[in-house]
Write a protein that binds this DNA or RNA. Structure first.
Lengths: 213, 213
DNA sequence: CCATGTGAAGGTATTCACAGCC
DNA sequence: GGCTGTGAATACCTTCACATGG
């Protein structure tokens, strides 16, 4: 256990491990070896051990990892024990899908507020959340919501981010396909779905090159 | 121009450059410098030049890049000139949002088929696409669709992938939060939205550590 | 004997600095 | 003078091999 800075790539993989641990826990297991976890999540065993070594000794040689304890350790490292409430801005097609998506629960995350500019939508209740006017984003600070999801059109993304930052939001998951400027202390992760699809063809063999396999 | 293998990270950034070039083209520009493009997409100028150097000489020293020519070059490298039709499997909340999403057009990609198991949905037309029975995925080969988006529940993801592979699909963008097995020649990119949100808190300063800036 | 944790080696990507060209 | 393309240096991440401990 050395408490080095945790590599970004390790941080990216930690949620995968957490997911795998949940599955094993559901099956009633109490302990799991790095090899078994590796098989279930599709990462190499040494990679898992190396990743975990950056922030604590969780395993017992000859036995493996206590699932419950390791899951708690990863959650604490990812700060998922402290931050659990998120706001959504932009209740269009994608935003609605995110509101309905049950997958955030796995990580203890909850969308507890939703905003839109459309007067038609404001006041409506979607999945138990009342849609509020975007102008009310400034109430996030007193509601202690520091995590936000941006699912607005590209043109509205920057101004949305500005108001979120002003409201004390510290982390933003952005679905708008554009560059966003924010103070360095604010972490912005942009997830551009079309871009992911666009890089797929590069890895696909051309029809002419069938002989390859 | 050296025609080395293109690094994965470079492939990941190419669609960003493409997006930036579109914007400049819309503004009527004909040429753009790496520095200008860098400012507009949020990547360093030397990174852009290095990335582009892996697959061709597009720039003119003292002038910059011809936007039209560079865009064509990137599209060709990403094989976006050859592959343009995609199928969607799973027309739930997320799937519907993807069907309605106009952003794929930017990369010349089109969703031209949609599948679901729900008898209630089969036959319905969403955004001009008729939803077909998942059993008909095997027709993709003769329709020359080799790109697919998987937006089904986790439990159905693996069997969906199996049928897509059997139908000759070569590239898959998967939204289900699970490991998928597929032949090595098939490229699978998994995009786990909840996981992206889950790694955000790690980068957010704790409330107690306000002093940090 | 079995599985973890970690130095060390190897590989990949980023960053720099500048030669070369318009 | 301005901007590209690229070798070289640096930083980062992955992979290996094994010492260590239950």
């Amino acid at each position: 256990m050395r408490y080095h800075k945790i590599p970004d790539e390790t941080v990216r993989r930690l949620p995968i491990y957490l997911r795998g641990l949940m599955v094993s826990a559901d099956q009633g297991c109490e302990h799991i070896s790095s090899q078994l976890l590796a098989d279930s999540v599709g990462v190499d065993a040494w990679q898992i051990r190396k990743d975990l070594s950056y922030f604590g000794d969780f395993g017992t040689p000859g036995v493996g990892y206590n699932i419950e304890r390791l899951a708690r350790g990863i959650k604490k490292t990812l700060r998922l024990d402290a931050i659990r409430r998120a706001a959504l801005v932009g209740v269009g097609d994608l935003g609605s899908a995110l509101l309905a998506y049950p997958g955030f629960r796995m990580y203890g995350l909850d969308i507890v507020a939703a905003f839109d500019v459309d007067r038609q939508k404001i006041g409506a209740v979607v999945n138990g959340i009342e849609i509020e006017d975007t102008a009310r984003i400034d109430t996030l600070k007193q509601r202690e919501i520091s995590l936000a999801i941006v699912a607005v059109p590209r043109e509205a993304a920057q101004i949305t981010v500005d108001s979120l930052v002003a409201a004390g939001v510290k982390g933003i998951l952005n679905f708008a396909p554009c560059k966003l400027v924010a103070p360095r202390r604010i972490k912005v992760i942009t997830l551009d779905i079309a871009m992911e699809l666009a890089r797929l063809p590069y890895y696909m063999p051309r029809a002419e090159q069938v002989a390859e396999t």
